[in-house]
């Protein structure tokens, strides 16, 4: 019985999880193209800070988790060592999504660009009924949105 449940969860993760990820990537690519007019930079300096009219901090966060199938694969990979692609794409998705949300907030409030972008990542352990304790991350991103004098 346990084995049947396991097989069911694995296939559910494989089919649904894969689709969720592909859909998410498509969505990210589309929104990134739309938000190209709001650059986000990691520098604290601009060429001329006097051009800035207004500044305010903006932030965004995402909690994102692996599907059952990938968590299982990652568990196997943990045993043999090496690159865990499932986590790489997960974190990539999370970070890009967080940046997009931050940019959306900035755009909504009429800001022109974001300075001093910083990331913060935390693993959220032990989600109930998860097999392992990993597979769930919070990604947070923050920066200073500025309005430029036209």
């Amino acid at each position: 019985m346990d084995f049947i449940i396991f097989l069911f969860l694995i296939s559910l993760g494989f089919f649904v999880g894969g689709r969720v990820e592909r859909k998410h990537y498509k969505d990210i690519a589309k929104r990134e193209a739309e938000l190209l007019d709001i650059p986000a930079v990691t520098s604290k300096e601009l060429h001329n800070l006097d051009d800035v009219e207004e500044a305010q901090m903006v932030s965004a966060n995402v909690v994102i988790s692996l599907d059952y199938f990938k968590r299982f694969l990652a568990g196997l990979r943990n045993f043999f060592g090496g690159r865990i692609k499932a986590y790489e794409t997960l974190l990539d998705r999370g970070r890009r999504e967080a940046i997009l949300r931050m940019k959306e907030t900035a755009k909504l409030n009429g800001y022109d660009m974001i300075m001093n972008l910083r990331f913060e990542t935390a693993g959220i352990g032990q989600v109930t009924s998860g097999r392992g304790s990993l597979g769930c991350f919070e990604v947070m991103v923050y920066g200073t949105a500025v309005k430029l004098r036209k």
Partner: peptide, 26 residues
């Protein structure tokens, strides 16, 4: 929200309950 997250954890993707929780806390 933990229970919902547990279910969502099967198929992966964003856990909106947690996102909201952490956002509010910050």
């Amino acid at each position: 929200s933990d229970f919902a997250a547990g279910l969502k954890n099967m198929v992966g993707g964003e856990l909106k309950g947690y996102t909201k929780l952490l956002e509010d806390a910050r």
